[in-house]
């Protein structure tokens, strides 16, 4: 069994983003009497940054246990998933750069009780993906092309993982 957490450096960066965003969007609402359209736009964005800040706080309290049996997330919202009941696996890659470098991945695991999400800032993300991919292979899950490409980029063989987009006559 391995314990993983989100590293404090990544979390601090996210706290900084949330604070900067709140200041830049909420600040004008406090100091300048804006018109209704601006209240909706800036207020909506400030709400997003607030949610993001709270979400980062939740991540700081989160611990992920990866084992042969499954994955368990403990924190304010605890949840668990056994590999034997894995229903779906998706990996998406995001980057804010135009050349799409220096990005991060997001892993979504579907189980009977809902979906659990992780991103590649998590310590031991590669290990988690390897175990999830092995479980998907065992369960005979079909994955989409983007997920298979992203698995390939992480050095995980796509053999044995069916493609949901595979051409069928």
């Amino acid at each position: 069994m391995k314990l993983a957490r989100y590293p404090i450096n990544a979390l601090l960066a996210d706290y900084g983003r949330a604070a900067l965003g709140l200041a830049a969007t909420g600040g004008p609402l406090l100091f300048v009497p804006p018109n209704p359209a601006m209240v909706i736009i800036l207020g909506g964005m400030a709400g997003l940054f607030l949610i993001f800040g709270l979400r980062t706080g939740l991540r700081q309290l989160t611990t992920v246990e990866v084992s042969e049996r499954g994955v368990r997330v403990t924190g304010l919202r605890s949840t668990a998933l056994d590999w034997t009941v894995l229903k779906g696996l998706r990996i998406r890659y995001y980057s804010t750069r135009r050349d799409r470098t220096q990005g991060w991945m997001q892993l979504k695991l579907d189980g009977p009780d809902g979906t659990i999400g992780f991103d590649s800032h998590l310590d031991g993300f590669d290990e988690l993906v390897k175990r999830a991919a092995a479980a998907a292979r065992t369960a005979g899950l079909t994955l989409n092309e983007a997920t298979l490409d992203n698995l390939g980029a992480l050095g995980i063989e796509r053999a044995g993982l069916g493609s949901a987009d595979e051409a069928r006559p």
């Binding site: 590293p7 990544a10 998406r92 890659y93 995001y94 980057s95 050349d99 799409r100 470098t101 220096q102 990005g103 991060w104 991945m105 590649s120 800032h121 092309e145 983007a146 490409d149 992203n150 980029a153």
Partner: peptide, 16 residues
Amino acid sequence: LAAFDPRIRLHGGLSR
């Protein structure tokens, strides 16, 4: 683009 094509580019890299 992020929604339609969420694949990594092989010249890219992950930030940690």
